[in-house]
Amino acid sequence: MDDEKRKEQLRTMFSKVVDPLGYKFSTDEELVEFLLEQEVNIEKEKGSPFCPCQGLTGEREHDMKLVCPCIPFHREHYDAMKRCWCGLYVHKDVDDPDSLMQISLKEFLESKNKD
């Protein structure tokens, strides 16, 4: 299958998955295109469209939680950032994705424990 077609398929499938979770594709179309392209390549190489911004360890239990969209497995952390780690998805009310920062899991957990 050609890459462009697969990219569109992923886009269609994944938008249905993230919608009920309150997320949408980022409005940064250039970023979205780039990330989906990476996922198509990763899928060809590794069999699944893993997150382009998180590392695989080779342990199935760990790695399966990084298949896009990985929001269900990192919900609280991503909700706090209003975006997923790689920024492919943002909360539905976000219009300016550039304003959203990456907050590491460690920082997130520390700030959570303070509250």
Binding site: C53, T57, S104, L105, K106
Partner: peptide
């Protein structure tokens, strides 16, 4: 190194 710092593999 990554896991020791914050138990995640984020880059």
């Amino acid at each position: 190194d990554c896991l020791a710092h914050g138990s995640e593999m984020s880059f």
